[in-house]
Computed example of a mutant assay.
Amino acid sequence: MVQQLFHGFLRWPLVIRIFMIAITLMLSFGTVIHFIEPDTFPSLFDGIWWAIITTSTVGYGDFVPLTWEGRLLGIVLILVGAGFLSTYFVTLAAETVMTQNAYLEGKATFKGKEHVIIVGWNERTREVINQLTSLQSTCDIILVDETLQKNPYNNHHIHFVKGTPFKDSILKKANLNEASIAIITADQNKDEMTSDMNSVLTLLAIKGNHPGLYTVVEILQKDQVANAKRAGADEVIQTNMQTSYVMMNSIISQGMSKTILKLLNHLKGNNLKLIPVAEEYINENFHSLSGHLLKNNIILLGIKKGENTSVNPPLTTIVEASDELLVISN
């Protein structure tokens, strides 16, 4: 039993072990001095108080041993106890610095819940993080990247994990199983094929560890969209296709790109989103429902039925309970 307790004690963190040894020494020496000189140290607390003051080398002088036994005990306490206490404070300071560096360099494990995991560091990631922190200042964001040397943000809600995102050990550091959503961005420093392969591989690793996690993945090549969907992506963003659509709209209607960006900018109060159908609107047609929502300053753009989204559908389209409404609101 004693041996098991000793081995268990050795597995404790170093700073806790040193602290426990120092406390034990002070309690033991304080108890002994009380029995050696009961007149000078009338209570057990007085003895422990003297031991603490002596070990910390403060030396108030309110309690002083008078016998040679007591003074010898004080000498031993100073030589042994002060050394352990000094070691404790030095170790505590070193542990604090190491922990701070671990968080800064992306080596620490995140232990929170309901956080957002974003894979890859680029300008798109920077903009997503800025928007998220502006809309939800308390939202915890985990940035996973293997190229960054340290956390680019001085914000305790943004945690950095350095490493290859499709490795289980790195995903474990990001506390993947407790996350609410994962966003995988494409690495545009690589060629499109390699970038998409890495994105799909990361997606497979995430879904393999947490199949129920909602995932959004950015894909550059149209041919790789199917692979991303096979890997379990809940949403696939085709960056090149969306950019080409914006450019085409700018060719047809000059200035349209600014309008589209403003429409999608939640920080400007424009919220393009999908909302469930309220019970009172079930079985209404698109035209009637549009009028009801407009009274509440909500513009109805389309209806999502299953996987299919119809923008500006026929006015006679009936809205069902399982549908979602594509709207603009503020």
Rank of each mutant, 00 (worst) to 15 (best):
D168C: 00
K273F: 00
F160W: 04
L261V: 11
M247G: 10
D62G: 07
S290G: 14
V200M: 01
L132W: 13
E114D: 14
H292L: 15
H159C: 01
K113Y: 05
E123H: 05
L148K: 08
W49P: 01
Q136M: 03
R124I: 13
H157Y: 10
K173E: 05
R124H: 10
N270D: 12
K173A: 00
L85H: 12
R11H: 14
G269H: 09
G30L: 09
V90G: 00
I158Y: 08
K305I: 09
T138W: 01
S329Q: 15
G47F: 02
V97S: 09
I303N: 09
A233D: 04
I252V: 14
S86Y: 12
F110N: 02
T239N: 12
G163N: 06
L27F: 09
S244P: 03
L132V: 11
L274W: 08
E324Y: 13
N283F: 11
H7T: 14
G106S: 06
W68K: 08
P38F: 10
Q238D: 11
E69S: 14
I298A: 03
V128E: 07
R230D: 15
L326M: 13
F286T: 12
K295R: 07
D39T: 13
I206W: 00
F6A: 04
G120M: 12
V246P: 03
I141F: 01
T99R: 08
T24N: 03
P13V: 13
V64I: 15
T215M: 02
F160Y: 13
A174T: 11
S244W: 02
L176T: 14
S290A: 15
I219V: 13
V97D: 04
E69G: 11
N151I: 03
G302R: 07
I158E: 05
N285V: 09
V277F: 10
I52D: 00
G106R: 04
S43W: 05
L301V: 03
V319M: 12
K273M: 04
P313A: 10
I237Q: 06
V319P: 07
T54W: 03
A278S: 14
D145W: 10
N297A: 12
N297Y: 10
V277D: 11
L201N: 05
A182Y: 01
L293I: 13
N240L: 15
Q221C: 07
C139A: 15
L135S: 07
P38N: 06
K107V: 00
T109N: 06
I33R: 09
Y60A: 06
K113W: 03
T91W: 02
D140A: 08
D187H: 08
Q254K: 14
I75Q: 13
A93R: 14
A93V: 04
M1E: 13
I16E: 06
D196E: 04
A233T: 10
K111A: 06
I53A: 09
T57W: 03
F110R: 01
L143R: 06
L213T: 01
L294A: 15
N265F: 07
K107A: 08
I303E: 11
G74L: 07
E280A: 11
A205D: 02
A93N: 11
L261R: 09
D234Q: 04
I18F: 05
N312L: 13
T99G: 12
N227W: 10
E235R: 15
I184C: 05
F286C: 08
T243P: 00
H210E: 06
T125A: 06
N296W: 05
A108E: 10
H210W: 03
V64P: 08
I184G: 02
V246G: 01
